[in-house]
């Protein structure tokens, strides 16, 4: 994370990519007298900022605190759950393992498989298309970009009904890809494979074309230029958009609730929703424990990549 790269064309291009650079702003240089505030002046200018910040943090954290508290509450019911846990027990977490009618880890595995496939395919296909739009000049390019922009405005959930009809027929021909199968669900989610084209194309455009040309003079093919020159430069934005797509797929509910009905093929969103909806009051502990297991890794990832996420979403990456 902290290597200090020499400034080359490549790094110059990538620095242009992520806008805000909080590093350096975080700690103002020592000895700048204008920034040193003391006593009453400090109180007047900064105290309210801290106050607003703390109130906002409490607001942001209360529901999360509640989830954690509910997950540790051995009774696991709504009525017995407070914001601050009084008894700490891991019974709810044990329940995640040994309740075959709610195979939490099976659902989690399904979700991770779906999310990984969707993320990888979407990023690869988007990179390919962005490369074509950024580096080639061909007839229909502008029209293609425009229609892509337009089509992607229509979320897939608008065509759920038609997809349902379509996949009931697909299931007759290819049972492995029909309704109520994970491969079928993955295929549907791949309909959005070009979702990141705009973002990535923008980044390709910032990489000087001279770089490609130099490589081509050295004998690289267009495929090699893509894989060896351009793709490595994209890493930061690929990580961010990959993460946001990943979290988006984990949270996808509508399509999964229609297409995945059997216990074994459910994703975490549909499975957990089903459990909580079945007994809103008494299954809260189980649901909360599951939520903690899912949310903690994602929160940690977000914390770790915090600064890049700010840059990524400012550039237009979208969660889900």
């Amino acid at each position: 994370m902290t290597s200090a790269p020499t400034p080359t064309a490549a790094t110059v291009a990538t620095t242009a990519v992520v806008k805000p650079s909080p590093r350096g702003r975080r700690r103002p240089p020592k000895g700048a007298p204008a920034d040193r505030l003391t006593g009453a002046r400090w109180w007047r200018t900064l105290s309210w900022r801290y106050l607003v910040g703390v109130v906002a943090c409490i607001y942001a954290v209360i529901p999360i605190l509640y989830i954690v508290s509910a997950s540790l509450n051995p009774i696991g019911s709504v009525a017995s759950t407070d914001l601050i846990p009084t008894v700490v027990s891991f019974a709810n977490f044990e329940q995640l393992w040994n309740n075959p009618s709610r195979p939490f880890f099976r659902w989690a595995l399904n979700t991770v498989v779906v999310a990984l496939v969707v993320v990888v395919v979407q990023l690869i296909f988007s990179c390919f298309a962005a490369y074509a739009f950024s580096r080639f000049r061909f007839r229909g390019r502008r029209a293609g970009l425009l229609s892509l922009l337009l089509i992607l405005m229509f979320p897939q959930i608008l065509v759920t009904v038609a997809l349902f009809q379509m996949f009931s027929i697909v299931g007759e021909v290819l049972p492995a890809f029909g309704l109520d199968t994970l491969p079928g669900y993955i295929l549907i989610m791949l309909g959005g494979s070009l979702g990141q084209v705009y973002l990535i194309k923008g980044f390709f455009d910032t990489v000087p074309i001279e770089l490609d040309e130099a490589a081509k003079i050295d004998g690289a093919s267009h495929l090699q230029v893509f894989f060896r020159i351009l793709l490595p430069l994209l890493q930061s934005i690929l990580v961010i958009s990959g993460l946001l797509v990943f979290v988006g797929v984990i949270g996808e509910f509508l399509l999964a609730s229609i297409f995945l009905r059997s216990t074994d093929v459910k994703t975490i969103a549909v499975g957990m929703q089903g459990v909580l909806a079945a007994d809103q009051s008494n299954n809260l502990g189980w649901f909360a424990a599951g939520s903690v297991v899912i949310a903690v890794p994602i929160i940690l990832l977000f914390q770790y990549l915090q600064r890049y996420i700010v840059g990524g979403i400012t550039a237009g990456a979208v969660k889900g």
Binding site: C57, I64, M272, Q303
Partner: peptide, 21 residues
């Protein structure tokens, strides 16, 4: 950075969990 760490949390949690809670 600490403030931001707290404020980013609702965004990180998968939406269906927050909504159901």
């Amino acid at each position: 950075r600490a403030f931001r760490s707290f404020l980013i949390m609702p965004y990180a949690i998968p939406g269906f969990i927050s909504l159901m809670v």
